[in-house]
Design a protein around this nucleic acid. Structure first.
Lengths: 219, 219
DNA sequence: CTTTTAGTTTAGGTAAAACTAAAAATTATT
DNA sequence: AATAATTTTTAGTTTTACCTAAACTAAAAG
């Protein structure tokens, strides 16, 4: 396994995020990376020389098999570090992303596997996102948006979207955490907001904007 | 607190290692960093523009107060990560240095302090080296070389020098760890080797080369 | 007191990774 | 189909960080 620069890894990560193994446009990639299109053109040229991507000029960039594999290994590291930061060091889930972005570039297979082991070989990170396994296999993406459940169901929160710190603040304010269970009391036909009852008896109302970022399974 | 490149941080670390706040020659610095003298000349020029070092051409480079402070904060991170890798993840002490060199560049005050807290705010790392405290204070450098103890003393191993992986392998083979206690049975007047008796009754002989890298206190 | 030598600096070059500005190709619109 | 709008690429520049080769400084040896 060769070593890659942080910049390279960031491009690979962005490509995987935007398209998986499908082609991605120069512009979308530039926007995601936060660089100008011209910088991206050069960067992907370097990546294609390392056989991490295939480039069709004016058409798009696409991860190769090697590229996808690298992307998954970076994502694995990222999500394991996030798990460590939240579960072991007690960070809030809104704080961990930028830190994991730095930690994910540390190069050591053994470190990743020891970390995974220490954490109990988790399959999902603190946001409920699947952690790619060492063999490249992806655990299932859990849950359905809250709005998908009819009145009367009992549900368990299993995943939240990374929708910015204000969203996470709101979750904290409402004391909503992964694993919490609720009864769906009502779904507004006016604004698609949802009314939930916690086991404690407390009732909370969630706006549609909140609901689409919270995923659950029936429990 | 500004952010620095990894290269910058490596130069600061090397300067601190070689001379503390005393001047260091271009050549020594080049050797330590593993670059050519010319590269060092340019690098320290960049550092002096950031007021991290003072340079007197042909004479030497010296850390400023800011430089020393930065050096200590990097060393703090390095040694806390080493402690984490050994105590929490179970790495051997010969494996952790290159990993800590990567982890020490992660930028986050809060991460360092949470890590320290998780580890029990240690004052010394797995090799017994002092961990600089958040205020810059340095805990004591523990112990004296094994050869300094006379026959009949009971000693406790508190620190080992980083003298390469063969040295660590030898320590492992002899099952010598920090905190172990021994009785000094004899010191050879021929080759300065030392004979120790473990509480288990086992006797071990340490060559002079081993002794000078192992530090102890009387116990 | 000159010469040699060891160490250091300058000068010039390469590569990664970003940028701006302008040209070329693609896509959309009349 | 021709032109307008958008996207992408090319060309040239900047910064960091390394390199080699040549020039310079300081100190020791002759």
């Amino acid at each position: 396994m060769k070593t890659h620069t942080e910049s390279e890894e960031n491009y690979i990560k962005a490509l995987y995020h935007l398209g998986g193994d499908n082609p991605v446009s120069n512009g979308d990639l530039a926007h995601r990376i936060g660089a100008k299109g011209s910088s991206v053109t050069q960067a992907v040229k370097r990546l294609s020389q390392k056989n991490l991507v295939t480039v069709v000029p004016y058409k798009g960039v696409q991860l190769t098999e090697d590229g996808v594999q690298l992307a998954k290994s970076i994502l694995r590291k990222h999500r394991l570090w996030e798990t460590f930061l939240v579960d072991t060091l007690g960070f809030g889930w809104d704080q961990v992303h930028p830190l994991a972005e730095q930690l994910e570039h540390v190069q050591s297979e053994e470190l990743v596997e020891r970390l995974s082991n220490f954490l109990g070989a988790p399959k999902h990170d603190p946001h409920g996102d699947p952690i790619p396994q060492p063999n490249g296999q992806m655990p299932p993406v859990l849950g359905e948006p809250l709005g998908a459940f009819a009145k009367g169901h009992t549900i368990k929160v299993v995943r939240v979207e990374d929708a910015g710190s204000e969203f996470f603040d709101q979750l904290d304010a409402m004391n909503i955490n992964l694993g919490n269970t609720y009864d769906v009391e009502a779904i507004s036909s006016f604004d698609a907001s949802v009314q939930l009852k916690a086991p404690s008896g407390h009732t909370i109302w969630l706006s549609h904007s909140m609901c689409v970022n919270i995923y659950a399974v029936s429990a």
